[in-house]
């Protein structure tokens, strides 16, 4: 009888441990999830339909804070934007490219304050302009996210200047 109880307790501990490992999401995981969503919403895959485009451009704004600063070394994108403006910028970018892929890797997340996350990552942008020209850019970015109502929202994107002429 004692053996059965011990076996049951061990099984419960193992199941609880597995549940924690599989389903528990840390703040770091939540921040990475936001980046994965941004990558998906901002990318335009070949043959993407109008309905998907509409869904993505509307959803992308929801990932951003009330005011998000972009310092990306490009006058077209740099500035301070509201989520609605981010959505319309996304529409304009999609019109310029027949396909575009934004991916993030080497992601390093820090939490300097309670509701603030500072992320350093490598961003790769590959795309084909509607005219046929290929674009391939890699940059190191510093991204700031703020937690509002339990949701991590993008507040700033800044290119890390590696070489200054």
């Amino acid at each position: 009888m004692v053996k059965k109880i011990i076996a049951a307790l061990v099984a419960i501990v193992i199941i609880a441990g597995l549940y924690f490992v599989i389903f528990h999401k840390s703040d770091k995981d939540r921040v990475k999830r936001q980046l994965a969503l941004l990558s998906d919403y901002a990318s335009k895959y070949p043959g993407e339909g109008a309905a998907v485009m509409l869904m993505k451009t509307q959803a992308v704004g929801g990932l951003f804070d009330e005011h998000c600063g972009l310092e990306v070394g490009d006058d077209f994108f740099s500035g301070d934007y509201t989520p609605e403006e981010i959505s319309s910028k996304s529409v304009m970018m999609r019109r310029q490219f027949s396909n575009a892929l934004i991916s993030f890797y080497d992601i390093n997340v820090d939490f300097p304050e309670k509701d603030k996350a500072l992320v350093t990552l490598t961003a790769r942008f590959t795309g084909v302009v509607s005219g046929g020209e290929t674009v391939n850019q890699v940059r190191e970015l510093q991204v700031t996210l703020n937690r509002k109502n339990g949701k991590w929202l993008f507040a700033e994107f800044k290119i890390v200047t590696v070489l200054k002429k």
Binding site: Y105, D106, L121, T122, A123, V138, R139, E140, V160, V162, L163
Partner: peptide
């Protein structure tokens, strides 16, 4: 060799 972005992109 200068680290440009992340751990993999170098100049």
């Amino acid at each position: 060799i200068v680290r440009f972005a992340g751990k993999k992109i170098m100049l």
